[in-house]
Design a binder for these strands. Structure first.
Length: 654
DNA sequence: ACGCCCCTAAACAGGC
DNA sequence: GGCCTGTTTAGGGGCG
């Protein structure tokens, strides 16, 4: 890609207003250049990268922190549990006030560790600005001999701060784009996201590994969450999802109990599995239950250490619950924002897909046959890139990444639209808001978008400028790189026979010759594999999504992985639509429904100039209605569309 | 390998 | 001359 891009870039010398934009917009121009992507979209690093970075850094920080503490525990001499409190200074400093108080820390040995970890990060987010903090921290909390780590910590803190700043920027960008409707909490959460249960697990493990003293080991490793029972699985599933079901959380129940009971039922001890002791930090091998019990009584008797470890575990659970609650809240907000029903978490299931995009694809396509309007929510699940075709919003900002694709990167994906033309209507209807706010490249070809714009207009005719306005109005994505996409629009208008230029009083207007449009290619849209593929690739998000998904999943959705979440219901709904992709029909519908275009009466307008297309349209209108109707109605955005034309001039355009 | 699509970039021309 | 609108050409990638 790089090579190509290079050449491309060279040749492209946008005289446009925004050289950058041009680059960014497409793969080719900007192609390889990150610059391009940054330029507009989000500027800087791709969300995915950011997330990864974040996570990694957070993890690192956490590790260091734990290690530090661990070492502290050990060094002091075996059992000095009390020390822990002291050791948390750094974290403390960074922690928000409400967090753990020094006294608490003293009481509880390990909990502080965990909290410190989590909070440290949170605090960082909030206080990134204060580079000084750490200094305070040291002095403030200080009794502990963390001098040894001093420099290291500082370094890592700075790193964290940097990373957080980046993250915040990113978040801001997302918010701007409407991707992250979430409020302020987002930031905080993001940090938390960085630390998913699995991470914690790892942390513990690592720490334990490092620690020389047995105690340390036990302590660290623990968190039953870390149970390695299923290492292969990705992080989330295991730790969090496995034991903590969202449901339980929702209900306020603590997951732990459940799990225990479950295991017991199995006939084994909750702390015993796979031949080893699952006590946090302890991996002692026990041939059988008897031996285990013995071990349990000997090694994990009621003493300070065990008590402390137990507290740590409690903290872990608490943290997870808190995080879960936050994530749930966020999910609700996201769904609400995307017009989904709050109660249905399903869409997100996909997140899991990260791993297997292929499966996703299938799923999506099946679930939502092409143009079906399905919730942009899916977007929520950036995960579902594939299906995305149209409906998914997914990676809004991501598109920036799209550059990775070849030239066309993200552009609207070609065929989808055509083949699925209809999909456009429904898709747009459904995700209107999404596209308006998210900087996501719509998965449709310029031709299909233009056509849609024209058909959507009251008179089914638009001037070039009106078309431009429609684009900018409807898609945040087209608020940049104006030179590029406008050129493309003009190019399409001229090139395709389906677009007819009509001289009007106003000047020239463009209309659609539906017959010609239909001629272009046989509409067979059902979601054939290839189509799906195209969509994906075409979206340009393909890659993006994948990564983005992954990132997202890792960061925030980790908890959602729980199987329970995966519900096919959404899919089923969409299924209904399958088959109807009818291209034009959708459009019509949309219009009639007013979901997108308030134009209630398409007929009203008189085709003054030309009257070619009518026939097809009628058909279209009539049939799909049933299916779409339901969907469309649900969509909330009827009004905006309306105003668009006149309301929005070119303001948005540069 | 070919042809078709789609996309982007650009050069040009005409009109205001 | 600058901008907008249209037209056309060129080249690249994806896909069947």
């Amino acid at each position: 890609m790089m090579v190509e891009s290079a050449s491309e870039t060279i040749r492209t010398t946008p005289s446009n207003q925004n050289g950058v934009s041009s680059l960014s917009s497409q793969s080719d121009g900007g192609g390889g250049r990150e610059g391009g992507s940054n330029g507009d979209t989000n500027g800087e690093i791709s969300p995915v990268d950011l997330l990864h970075l974040q996570q990694q850094q957070a993890l690192q920080a956490a590790r260091q922190f734990l290690l530090q503490q661990a070492s502290g525990l050990n060094s002091p001499g075996g059992n000095e549990v009390k020390q822990s409190p002291v050791q948390v200074p750094v974290s403390m400093a960074m922690m928000s006030p409400q967090m753990i108080t020094p006294q608490q820390m003293q009481q509880i040995l390990s909990p502080p560790q965990l909290q410190a970890l989590l909070q440290q990060q949170q605090a960082l987010m909030l206080q990134q600005v204060n580079t000084h903090t750490h200094t305070h921290i040291h002095t403030k909390v200080g009794p502990r001999p963390r001098l040894q780590l001093g420099s290291k910590q500082l370094a890592f803190q700075q790193q964290l701060i940097q990373m957080q700043q980046l993250q915040q920027q990113h978040i801001l960008n997302l918010q701007r784009q409407g991707l992250v409707p979430m409020q302020p909490t987002a930031t905080m959460q993001s940090l938390q996201q960085a630390m998913c249960p699995s991470d914690l697990q790892q942390l513990w493990k690592e720490v334990s590994g490092v620690q020389s003293s047995e105690e340390a080991l036990k302590q660290a490793e623990g968190l039953d969450l870390s149970t390695n029972s299923s290492n292969s699985t990705s992080a989330f599933p295991k730790a969090a999802s496995a034991h903590i079901s969202l449901h339980s959380l929702a209900n306020g129940q603590s997951h732990t109990p459940k799990r225990d009971s479950h295991e017991e039922h199995a006939g084994s001890h909750p702390l015993y599995g796979h031949g080893e002791c699952k006590w946090p930090g302890c991996e002692a091998l026990c041939e059988d239950m008897g031996q285990f019990i013995k071990h349990l009584n000997n090694e994990h008797a009621l003493d300070d250490r065990s008590t402390a470890q137990c507290r740590v575990q409690m903290q872990v659970v608490q943290q997870l619950e808190i995080q879960l609650a936050k994530e749930s809240e966020r999910l609700q907000a996201m769904m609400a924002h995307l017009h989904m029903r709050p109660s249905e978490p399903k869409p997100f299931n996909q997140p899991l897909n990260l791993a297997s995009s292929g499966s996703l694809l299938k799923r999506d396509s099946d679930a939502y046959p092409e143009g079906l309007p399905h919730p942009p929510t899916s977007a929520a699940a950036p995960i579902t890139p594939l299906r995305q075709g149209p409906s998914v919003i997914s990676s809004s900002s991501l598109h920036s990444h799209s550059h990775s694709h070849t030239h066309g990167v993200g552009p609207i994906r070609r065929r989808n639209s055509d083949k699925y033309c209809t999909p456009i209507a429904s898709e747009l209807a459904q995700n209107c808001e999404f596209y308006k706010n998210a900087d996501v490249r719509p998965p449709f070809t310029y031709a299909s978008l233009i056509r849609h714009a024209i058909l959507e207009s009251p008179d089914r005719q638009l001037t070039l400028n009106e078309i431009y306005n429609w684009f900018t109005r409807k898609f945040a994505y087209f608020r940049r790189n104006t030179a590029t996409w406008k050129n493309a629009v003009r190019h399409n208008l001229s090139l395709h026979k389906c677009f007819v230029r009509v001289e009007n009083v106003k000047g020239a207007v463009w209309t659609v010759d539906e017959v010609e449009y239909q001629k272009r290619r046989p509409p067979k849209m059902t979601g054939s594999p290839t189509l799906v593929k195209n969509m994906i690739s075409g979206l340009g998000f393909g890659s993006l999504n994948a990564s983005y998904q992954a990132a997202l999943a890792e960061s925030s959705l980790s908890l959602l992985n729980s199987p329970s979440l995966l519900t096919p219901s959404a899919a089923s709904l969409n299924m209904l639509h399958v088959g109807h992709d009818d291209v034009s029909s959708t459009v019509e519908q949309v219009n009639s429904n007013g979901s997108c275009s308030p134009t209630l009466s398409p007929q009203q307008y008189s085709h003054q100039v030309h009257v070619k297309e009518e026939p097809t349209e009628l058909e279209e209108d009539s049939r799909p209605v049933s299916l779409l109707a339901g969907v469309t109605h649900s969509l909330p955005l009827p009004s905006d569309e309306r105003d668009l034309e006149e309301d929005l001039p070119t303001e948005e355009l540069e």
